[in-house]
């Protein structure tokens, strides 16, 4: 077994374990912290796949900005433990069955209907570095990049408008 495969298996186990921890933990804070760990392991996968720029963006944007926002809202709402509400009895089994169906379907497609021929040759040295990504982003994908800025502006305005108190509303 090569060192690459060992590393992959260890990281895959960590990723799946942290995802399961997020699913099963009762407290929202623990779930958020598990998710941070999950994002970090996925960032290491990106590094293994020759995507250093994406890996660091993952850490700063996901594990940094987005999860801090999550933790902030969890602490703001102060509702990290929900009271047990009555649940539909058939809901959990049905969810598990549907999820099992999805995973069986995708793994079947990947293993038996797969036409991807994996070319694991040597890459050019600059593959995935910030310089080549920047070149791509500002030449071939300039319009989508500009549209992203509008999207972020709309999201910002939306967040402000949604959390603003309505006129005449009493606290």
């Amino acid at each position: 077994m090569s060192i690459d495969l060992l590393l992959f298996l260890f990281l895959a186990l960590a990723a799946i374990g942290t995802a399961a921890g997020m699913l099963l933990s009762r407290s929202a804070i623990y779930a958020a912290l598990f998710l941070v760990l999950n994002f970090a392991t996925v960032a290491v996968f990106y590094l293994l796949l020759n995507a250093p720029f994406i890996a660091l963006t993952q850490i700063t944007v996901y594990a940094g900005a987005i999860m801090v926002l999550f933790l902030f809202v969890i602490m703001l709402l102060g509702a990290e433990k929900l009271p047990k509400s009555k649940v539909l009895p058939w809901q959990r089994p049905l969810a598990v069955i549907l999820a099992a169906g999805l995973i069986v379907e995708t793994v079947y497609l990947l293993l038996f209907k797969n036409t991807i021929t994996s070319t694991v040759g040597k890459l050019v040295e600059t593959f995935g570095d910030p310089r080549s990504i920047g070149g791509f982003l500002f030449n071939d994908y300039l319009l989508p990049f500009e549209i992203t800025s509008v999207l972020l502006l709309v999201a910002m305005i939306g967040a402000i408008v949604l959390t603003k108190k309505e006129k005449g509303e009493k606290e």
């Binding site: 995802a19 399961a20 699913l23 049905l94 598990v96 995708t106």
Partner: peptide, 11 residues
């Protein structure tokens, strides 16, 4: 990972 996310949304 995708399936675990989908299951999280459901349960």
């Amino acid at each position: 990972l995708f399936t675990m996310g989908a299951m999280g949304v459901l349960i």
